[in-house]
Write a protein that binds this DNA or RNA. Sequence first.
DNA 1: TCAATAAAGTTGTCTGACAACTTCATCGAC
DNA 2: GTCGATGAAGTTGTCAGACAACTTTATTGA
Lengths: 239, 239
Amino acid sequence: MTGKPRTNNLVERVMARLGADIRGGRLGPGARLPTEQELTASMGVSRTVVREAVAALRADGLVVTRRGSGAYVADPAASPFRIAAPHAADLGEILDVMELRLAVEVEAAALAAERATRKQIAAIRMALRSIDRALRGGDGAVAEDFAFHCAIAEATGNRQFPRFLAFLGNHVIPRQSVRLAVDTPAERRAYLERIQHEHGRIVAGISAEDPAEARRAMHEHLTRSLERYRNLARRSVDG
Amino acid sequence: MTGKPRTNNLVERVMARLGADIRGGRLGPGARLPTEQELTASMGVSRTVVREAVAALRADGLVVTRRGSGAYVADPAASPFRIAAPHAADLGEILDVMELRLAVEVEAAALAAERATRKQIAAIRMALRSIDRALRGGDGAVAEDFAFHCAIAEATGNRQFPRFLAFLGNHVIPRQSVRLAVDTPAERRAYLERIQHEHGRIVAGISAEDPAEARRAMHEHLTRSLERYRNLARRSVDG
DNA sequence: TCAATAAAGTTGTCTGACAACTTCATCGAC
DNA sequence: GTCGATGAAGTTGTCAGACAACTTTATTGA
């Protein structure tokens, strides 16, 4: 029924079981975990393995340990927010995360329009020129595109924005790389040029210190990007 | 100079050192960590401690281990995004996170307006009535307010939004509780009524399937909230 | 009844050992 | 000389036992 364990790693097996008990609610906040002795017995592993598993769960913020007393399920309020790397296979999950990214970037553009320093605007402009250069070189300019968006996030003056984007960018920018394979060179050039036009409009909004315009421009830019990706998802599902 | 270690926990001490080496760039992605033997020697702890520290770092996604080969700094692209619970003392950090929340909630309102099912809209309306009831009972309705925002996040149909909000809500809703202490009862009632009026406008936008209006309403609502908090921060700093 | 004390239980740390696997140098055949 | 096989050394994974530090509970005594 349960099948063989997917991993040879004993620590992960113990982690998986305890993690499931916690997240599944069988062990509520504040509940005490089985003692190390009980776990070694019930799972047939050594204390070393149990302790490493608990150490990992502690690092995840799921449990706290009290010497002499036991290990307890942590208050969820104290555990940090995490977004695991979405499985590349799960298109739905990727789309969900992309929407979250859109939310963050749209506001970032508006904040950048309100607060960007001259230096930061110059950095954004430079990133835009880097994309131009890469495009003229026949490149997809994926890295340059990402750097451009990061420059805007930096210009918010809010450290959470670049942090968030830096994470998402690593996972959720299959844009060009995924898409370019299915297009003709002519379509591709047209597509990249339109992208760059959209970028230009975003920069104009920020430079003009017009948050509403910056927001609109970024929103349209990312909505189109999302829409393309959604079509791709539909296509790969239907046919 | 460095002072005594803040923790008695040896595992955390080793984690702190390795984590600092990694995040500080002294150990770049792909770099190999010192062997367990070297770490036991250089830090004067047992192998047990070193192994638990490495297990924790692995759980954090900072390190991957290869049996027979060594432990390596993970590709940052594979490590999950985390927002640690902001220190309550650090007002600037809280404001930063609140801006991130604003970004997410504004888009959530728009998505809810596009996609909410009848059932979801009913849930939002019910949450709104719960706030009403609590207010009439003389309560601050903090929990009910949070539930209202969560209901909107649910109505996006995107699981990432409620997840994100569920985390932030636990940390960043000192709104009323902080503020109410400094106001007269009359001011307080007026304030809460205006909040509720803003809520009503958000619901109207969502019900009318008008994303632009829902977005505007939510944006104004949260911007005011943020502004109040900013003033509070200024006040507590200046005087 | 209540406080001090003892005992049992639990996590934290140390030590030593072996298994499983990787890496690299050495050696031998061609 | 080149290339593959072999073996040794090094490294992580797991097990076992022990003691220290601390908490909780039960016992005892006033």
